[in-house]
Design a protein around this nucleic acid. Structure first.
Lengths: 353, 353
DNA sequence: GCCCGCGTCTATACCGGTACAGTAGCGAGC
DNA sequence: GCTCGCTACTGTACCGGTATAGACGCGGGC
């Protein structure tokens, strides 16, 4: 009735438990003939292999890394860009045999996966830095890599040049002669609707970086934008609503800078429904270079970020950190900044006269 | 230098290790004052809480469940429908505190997360039944729930009525007078292009169910469809290519039944590029009722499946099984079949005269 | 006054492995 | 002939917790 363990097999054959362990984990430590015999008996007994949990405790490694995501995990999981990121992670992880454990940063009473789930290290993706979950992770002294998040001292971080990309986007519409510019941003917690003072609005990290980038260029040209922040929801729907808000907030913009391609798509739909032609009457710039930027018409002018590279770089940084953690030195934190690139397509045109 | 464990704290205060353990895990087992003292000292010492791995070994529960996905995990992860499913899972899992570990069923030499990663149970999503990974999971005697997959005796499974939904889709176009029908399906491994004998083509489970559903209706009406199977890739791109293949395979169809909404979108684009109007010259029916079905124009006639319910039902079935596994009885496997529903929108119309 | 029950805390025995330092046996080198 | 070194296997000590039964003191009921 009892469960089959290494000991069961060892007793059955008359060798030590250690030898059976070696048969599974270090084949070079015993003769091939004995190993075969052990494996055969194990098979007969229905032994599946060393118990992962026990192995994890004894060896100090679990074979899984965590991916901590913002509290709105279900929302993030329906975002194409985030999905591409996760796909890149799993793909890069595959040859290492590491599994990926999804962790919510949601602050639920007493339920803190970031504290209670076994893992070797974690990727922290676009989280609120003050989130308790992030605190638990650091307290556990797990190797961590921050992605799309405010870099912290001592912790490796991977970011894309959001600010630079946004600046390029704004410079692009300025160079086309636009002076009435609308901004469509997002983010949770905080005021929605037209932002009184965009520069000082409290925004999540990525949102604030892009905002700063846009303002870098607009301020330099002494253009004062109208910025609208839209709540969570289907991004194309909220983008639609955001554009409507922008149009009714005083003099309508001739150019809209959107936080994402999905927002931009929604905005374009709203503009077209109002009878405004994109790009001839209003120019729209997205962000990310999501597949939807290219697919629909007009093809979006956008700021490309290499999400795949972001995911792969993050994984490589983390696996390297795991490797180092086996030996002593803590290793110096690296801060990687990936380039962004303005991609000009059909959703921007010179400002109407 | 040594790591801080329960024993460190116990020694420091002069109580037994067990009492410290209880302070964290069973607060009702000691006085509040002692508990406070223990927690304070633990804090001072930088103790994070019971080590998840050790706890897992001792208590027999890891706090994570697996999600086994087909070997083309990166592909699956960029599919909106799969993402909605995963989002529903994480959302339903959140209040339980269980984390979700993503497992690839990819048969890589010696790398078998399904065998080596600790978990309490697993969801098996749309996998090849013969995959070794599924074998390992069953051998481990983990509580399992199969989703979108051929039901197996003794294992709880959640499916949607793919066949019935597909039949409705086919009946719909037949009722509109279409007699030249094209089919666009997908799946890996096997011939691509026009299928010689659709009914006997080797298809993955979901693909074959939908195929059977379409054929149920078409056969009854003595309509012989042309079926094209398209390889993996961006589904809208492959859908585009698939429609082209359909158009050049003899007499062009006046109705296309697509395996997914994404295929349908790609097909519509291809048709429009060929100057064919949808729905007036060609009708197209999708499957899933993905958000893209509603968003773009023409809005897709499609077969709605409740992906959110699928995810939640699967999680509930698994957590119930986990609960039962604590006590003895293995519990009878349930086989759930969720309804599908034909949603008629703007991509279907009566067959041209 | 005695015994019971309860609230607290402790002792011991695991959970199922792996690490590491042996030990035994045996052939080779000089 | 003795040491050396190698292969093959063993013994012991963990890894860091939890379960369970029991010990101990104390108040209350009869």
């Amino acid at each position: 009735m009892g469960r089959v363990t290494l000991q069961t097999i060892a007793d059955r054959i008359g060798v030590s438990r250690m030898t059976v362990s070696n048969a599974f984990s270090r084949p070079d430590q015993l003769s091939a003939s004995l190993r075969d015999r052990i494996l055969t008996v194990a098979e007969e007994l229905g032994y599946v292999g060393p118990d992962p949990t026990a192995r994890a405790l004894a060896s100090g490694t679990t074979g899984a890394i965590g991916l901590l995501m913002s509290d709105t995990m279900a929302y993030t999981l329906t975002d194409e860009v985030a999905m591409t990121f996760i796909a890149a992670i799993t793909d890069e992880l595959a040859p290492t045999g590491l599994a990926l454990t999804l962790l919510s940063a949601a602050p639920r009473e007493g339920i803190i996966p970031a504290r209670d789930v076994a893992m070797d290290g974690a990727l922290v993706y676009s989280c609120d830095m003050t989130s308790p979950a992030v605190g638990w992770l650091t307290r556990r002294r797990l190797p961590l890599v921050f992605v799309d998040q405010s870099p912290a001292p001592g912790i490796t971080s991977i970011n894309v040049d959001d600010r630079g990309g946004a600046r390029q986007a704004a410079e692009h519409v300025l160079s086309l002669g636009h002076r009435r510019v609308g901004i469509l941003t997002s983010g949770f917690g905080g005021e929605y609707g037209v932002l009184a003072d965009p520069r000082s609005a409290t925004l999540a990290y990525g949102e604030s970086q892009r905002m700063l980038g846009w303002l870098d260029a607009l301020d330099a040209a002494q253009v004062v934008p109208t910025a609208v922040r839209i709540p969570h929801g289907d991004p194309q729907d909220t983008g639609y609503a955001g554009a409507e808000a922008l149009l009714s907030a005083g003099e309508p913009p001739t150019a809209i800078l959107a936080f994402s391609d999905a927002f931009a798509r929604g905005a374009i739909r709203a503009l077209e429904d109002k009878g405004l032609s994109v790009p001839h009457e209003v120019s729209v710039v997205g962000f990310d270079d999501n597949p939807i930027a290219r697919r629909d018409r007009p093809a979006l002018t956008t700021v490309r970020q290499d999400v795949d590279a972001k995911g792969r770089t993050a994984v490589r940084a983390l696996t390297a950190a795991l490797e180092r953690a086996k030996t002593k030195p803590a290793g110096r934190a690296k801060h990687v900044m990936l380039d962004t690139e303005l991609v000009i397509r059909d959703s921007t045109a010179p400002a109407p006269a």
